[in-house]
């Protein structure tokens, strides 16, 4: 749907009105700041944090863990997904395990990961990778298998080898699914890193959040929530940017970003 600048202004006004009501309600009901702070005190906490250079190091740590976990998880997911998609035998033996893991809330494994891999970077990266892994693996399998029967027949009629069918047909055909998986995997990696930090960490936004919780700095916590959501948008936007370059031929996905995702009900 195309909307003009007027509705854009209206949209901003609507958000401003919501914040106004929030501010008013906090003052009117005299809500204590350790339960729900007013938007103005959140903004102040944010300003303070920026002024004292509190966030930068923690943002860096969280982003680093997220990106490393994303790369690790996605690389493994792509390789395993490809093997499963191409080999019915492998699929047959792995299927029950995959189903078990898929139904399990992956974040419930994070405490164990901390036990196994310590409190440093490694455990955070592995948590992020674990949570990012499944959406991409499932989408890789579905994408590689979604090649149209007619297109496969065309390749076969040209005497294409199995490898050629994979490289020239199945892989490009799967790219929309793979990118839908990557977009989800990026957000999931951030979640995995944050959960690990919340439990135990030396650095990172999750650890900062946790320490603010002890000092009942609720406004500070809200400011971190805000930062996290901006981070999520940026990280997701990066993948979208790459997708637009690679999938220039795929017009079906601009309308609905998750159209081709096979993982709508994915458990974290």
């Amino acid at each position: 749907m195309r909307r003009g600048p007027v509705s854009f202004v209206l949209r901003l006004l609507f958000i401003a009105a919501l914040l106004g009501v929030w501010e008013w309600a906090v003052v009117f009901f005299q809500t204590p700041a350790y339960i729900v702070p007013a938007p103005s005190s959140i903004a102040y906490a944010m300003y303070n944090g920026i002024a004292t250079n509190l966030y930068v190091g923690h943002i860096g740590a969280t982003v680093g863990e997220t990106l490393l976990g994303f790369v690790l998880g996605c690389a493994l997911a792509f390789v395993l997904g490809t093997i499963v998609a191409l080999s019915r035998t492998v699929e047959y033996y792995l299927y029950p395990i995959i189903i078990m893991f898929q139904a399990m809330p992956k974040v419930a494994l994070v405490p164990l990961i901390l036990v196994w891999f310590g409190l440093g970077l490694t455990s955070k990266v592995i948590s992020a990778a674990l949570v990012a892994f499944f959406p991409l693996m499932v989408n890789t399998i579905v994408g590689l298998r979604s090649a149209d029967e007619d297109r496969i027949n065309l390749m076969r009629s040209l005497s294409a080898s199995r490898w050629q069918i994979f490289r020239m047909l199945q892989l490009p055909n799967a790219m929309p699914y793979i990118f839908a998986g990557l977009e989800i995997a990026m957000i999931f990696a951030l979640i995995g890193a944050i959960v690990a930090e919340l439990i135990s960490a030396e650095r990172g936004l999750g650890m900062l959040m946790q320490s603010m919780s002890f000092t009942m700095d609720v406004a500070g916590q809200f400011s971190i929530l805000f930062i996290l959501s901006i981070l999520g948008l940026i990280l997701n936007g990066l993948v979208t940017l790459v997708r637009r370059q690679v999938l220039f031929w795929d017009t079906s996905r601009d309308a609905d970003a998750n159209e081709q995702s096979a993982t709508k009900g994915e458990v974290l």
Partner: peptide, 25 residues
């Protein structure tokens, strides 16, 4: 073989689609 539907690859240009048999073979 010409199939019932055109069966083109959307990620290949017209020339790329036409060249598919040459690439495969």
């Amino acid at each position: 073989v010409v199939f019932q539907s055109p069966v083109l690859f959307p990620w290949r240009s017209v020339l790329g689609n036409v060249m598919l048999p040459a690439d495969v073979q």
